[in-house]
Each structure stands twice: as structure tokens, then as C-alpha cells.
């Protein structure tokens, strides 16, 4: 099924629709390439962005959002926000409920291991002093982990507990 693409106006896409006839597009989110043609894989609005190279446009599809929550899945490098469920001496178990400030439909399990909590002197940290169950933390996904949980890290300066119950002021850093 072919649709003529008009680069000037916005366009909507249905999964399976062909987005380009020429070969000078690069793939962004929501589309895939098959036999030198770009097809859409999400239902939403298509946007074309100029990239640095001449004659090359990047195609992205922004999915149509019906509700306030999104159906994203954490990937490596994402910044996530989660609630602490359990603190043990070597890991903090977290329930991820938002990715990059977007609320999710479904929560995922994540774990911050002791070496990933801070960049320096991990053996001197007592996790029970840093985290408490019920705290909200911001972390970064470092790997897909095991089937039970994603592996997270709070070693960047903007990571850590951002909201805790005993004092209402958010703390930015452990």
C-alpha cells in the first residue's frame, strides 16, 4: 500500500504503511527497514527531521497516546524513576514506574547493586542508611539484567533519592 509523502505537512502512519520510496531516509523510532524501504511500525504521527548529511531525513513516529500512561519498556541508558521496595546489605530492590518522567502502564522490577550505588568506596556504604523502603529514587538502567529485574545504577550526580517520607524536602544526592 503506497502513500505519497509530502515532506512539508504532517502525516499520519499506520503500521505497515510505506513511508518512503527513495532510499535517503534514516530510521528513527517507530519504523523499520525492509528491502531498502522504510515502513511504519506504530500508529501515530510521522515527523521528518533533517540530519547533518545532505538529502537525508530521519523518520520518527510519535505514537498516538490515548491515556496518560505509556507502554514503554526500559532499555539500556534510560533514566528511570522508581520506588524502593526492599533494602538488603548488598542491593536495593526498586519498582520502576516511570521512564524519563513518563508514567508507565505497568511497573517493572529493578535492582541497584552495591557496586553501582556510588562511584567511590562501595564497601564503606551502608545501604540501610542511604535508602529506605518507600523512597522514590532516580536511577539509570545499565543492563537488562536477569529475568527477575533490570540492573540500575545511581552513580550519576543527579541520581539517588529524590523524595522521602520523613522529610518532605527532596534530597538530590546521597
Amino acid at each position: 500500500m503506497q502513500h505519497s509523502t509530502n515532506r512539508a505537512t504532517a502525516m499520519f502512519a499506520v503500521p505497515g504503511m510505506e513511508l518512503s520510496e527513495q532510499g535517503n531516509f534514516s530510521i528513527g523510532t517507530g519504523c523499520y527497514c525492509l528491502h531498502q524501504r522504510v515502513y511504519a511500525s506504530l500508529w501515530g504521527r510521522v515527523s521528518f527531521q533533517e540530519t547533518g548529511e545532505a538529502n537525508s531525513l530521519r523518520i520518527d513516529i510519535q505514537p498516538r497516546t490515548r491515556s496518560q500512561r505509556s507502554t514503554c519498556v526500559p532499555t539500556v541508558g534510560d533514566e528511570v524513576i522508581g520506588k524502593v521496595l526492599k533494602v538488603t546489605w548488598r542491593a536495593v530492590v526498586v519498582e520502576i514506574f516511570a521512564i524519563q518522567e513518563k508514567l508507565l502502564c505497568y511497573t517493572f522490577r529493578g535492582v541497584v547493586r552495591l557496586p553501582d550505588v556510588a562511584t567511590t568506596s562501595s564497601d564503606k556504604i551502608d545501604l540501610h542508611n542511604c535508602f529506605r523502603p518507600g523512597d522514590i529514587i532516580r536511577a539509570q538502567v545499565v543492563s537488562l539484567g536477569d529475568p527477575q529485574a533490570y540492573y540500575l545504577s545511581t552513580s550519576r550526580s543527579c541520581d539517588g533519592v529524590i523524595y522521602a517520607m520523613s522529610s518532605a524536602d527532596p534530597n538530590q544526592r546521597i
Binding site: V14, P15, S41, L42, W43, P63, T65, R66, T71
Partner: peptide
């Protein structure tokens, strides 16, 4: 099912 998957913004090759 195709409509539901498109509605859920799950990446599919085609409807």
C-alpha cells in the same frame, strides 16, 4: 487484535 496492538502502541510489522 491488529487494531488492539496498534492502539497499544506496540511495534508491529504491519496491521
Amino acid at each position: 487484535t491488529s487494531l488492539a496492538l496498534a492502539d497499544a502502541s506496540i511495534e508491529i510489522i504491519s496491521v
